[in-house]
Write a protein that binds this DNA or RNA. Sequence first.
DNA 1: CCTTGCTCTGAAATCGATTTCTTGCCACGA
DNA 2: TCGTGGCAAGAAATCGATTTCAGAGCAAGG
Lengths: 322, 322
Amino acid sequence: MVTIYDVAARAGVSPATVSRVFAGQVNVSPDLAEAVRRAAAELGFLPNRGAQRLRTATSRIVAMMVPDIENPFFTAVTRAVEDVARAAGYSVMLCNTDEDPAREEEYLRVAVQEPVAGVVIAPSARARLGLAVDRGLPVVCVDRHAAGYSLDAVVADNRAAAAAATSLLLKAGYRRIACVTGPAGVETADDRLAGWSDALAALGQAPSADLVRRVPFTVEGGTAATCELLALAGPPDAVFAANNRLAAGTLAALAAAGRLPPATGVVSFGGSPLMLLAPPGVIVTQLPARALGLRAAEMLLERIAGLDGPARSETLPISVTF
Amino acid sequence: MVTIYDVAARAGVSPATVSRVFAGQVNVSPDLAEAVRRAAAELGFLPNRGAQRLRTATSRIVAMMVPDIENPFFTAVTRAVEDVARAAGYSVMLCNTDEDPAREEEYLRVAVQEPVAGVVIAPSARARLGLAVDRGLPVVCVDRHAAGYSLDAVVADNRAAAAAATSLLLKAGYRRIACVTGPAGVETADDRLAGWSDALAALGQAPSADLVRRVPFTVEGGTAATCELLALAGPPDAVFAANNRLAAGTLAALAAAGRLPPATGVVSFGGSPLMLLAPPGVIVTQLPARALGLRAAEMLLERIAGLDGPARSETLPISVTF
DNA sequence: CCTTGCTCTGAAATCGATTTCTTGCCACGA
DNA sequence: TCGTGGCAAGAAATCGATTTCAGAGCAAGG
């Protein structure tokens, strides 16, 4: 490895001068600076970030932790975070937590040890963030809040949008609307269920537990839940699917049963490339994935820059178009 | 930050002893080791990886560089890499290159500077990997080879599978089969085109340039190309779409034209959640994304462990089922 | 001509871990 | 009783950068 000492020797100066040149030549004569730059180029010198980090206790990496790297929603959020971070000179380290608090904690441990400059996280249901938070590592939540910690967060207005989407089904004439959502305790699952319930209540319907299914946020979960619902004595005439994966599963089940829209009404809460081929009539709400990521990254950069003060929580609207 | 010195002071030993305890207590008396461990736990000590890396010149991070983080194929590959790496005690830093050699090089620079232990990369068409390769950083290619570098690589048998899939269309009775593929110079795009060509040639058809479209590997590209093809004087009766994105675009265009399968034959080279809702008759080849990632990660770990020898290139079969 | 005050440079300390080298201690055998 | 071997533990060097501090050189002012 070629070090600052090699460059110094070749340029005939001291390591201190080399460091100064790379830091932004305050008080370095132009000719020496030029000599250093030439020597560095000839040797292919690249500063060792570990050493920099050790000395300055700052880092140019942010960690992004998502529960499911294969969900297009989270990849879109990630991409936005990456765009902001890169523009500010940071690299992004992406970590896949699988909704598993243990994995999450393990990655947080790495983030602390590395150390990274900050963390953007979509926390799992019972996330343990103490490792990072207690040490003052800046952490910003995206898409979900972290229960028990007061942290900056930027989320979508799931409840209102879920209600709006459900209302669209009602307006289209569907009356027995089922809700297929994620596990209890997962904030987005609960909020969307609440929105569905709100919409029914607004029309004087008592939301019936029969028509609610809680399954993992997966295609298989959606399929299984929808099959169960179809097999009921009084099957639903519409399904509110609380995320893009569930909606895919629901549509697959409906296709198998020959009851695709418009025979059955469907809401896909959150879009996905999948919906490109969805039958007409499916109501797709587009989540503000990019906006969430952008804002979360901005907040994180502010905290990294030293912003103090109480935790901020922002809620972005979701446009429910048809 | 709590350091090894703090722990040493609290346990009443020297920093050297603390280090030895954490390294795996060779020649440390059990009682001192216990004291060290207790002190470390009380203080919440976590070793600083930057310092470790600086001293030992080893790192527990591997970088994964993909051209499109939003493509489910690459996320599946990534997940496999992550699984292998994690099992071996490594964290994965995921980098999104956007098929842009400049971005790629920028990330490689970071990888070298950090330094990471190794890199798994799906290189862009004119990738410049010298930065990493010249310094002896282990690099393994996945899904594509890196032109001009002799590196370990694990790829899928695109040409054979493309031929097989095209043959299925021929066997189903389609006769004017178009090919929508990626930009010239992208290995997977070229190989799949070659396979398509092979299949036609095997039946005595001369592959006609009229029926070939080269567009970016995007949904929009697939839609545009397919619209063009449909507008031809002699439109195709089937389309071989060389990747999952293109296939989605093709299906969208066919849907708009009212010519969905089986009216038009379609091959989707590479699956995606999207195909769940594809009309019956679409031929989907499943790429061995997971196997590619697993093998690439294994190869990388071998190189990191010091394996020497010539570059290895492995080609995994693709099962073309219908 | 001497002092004062700059600017530019280098020597050396520093960050937090690992590792070599050395020393202290104890046990064992002669 | 003394020498030798071996283990346990500490002191100090080290990794590659940054940064403080001090010194050299030079110009301006009295």
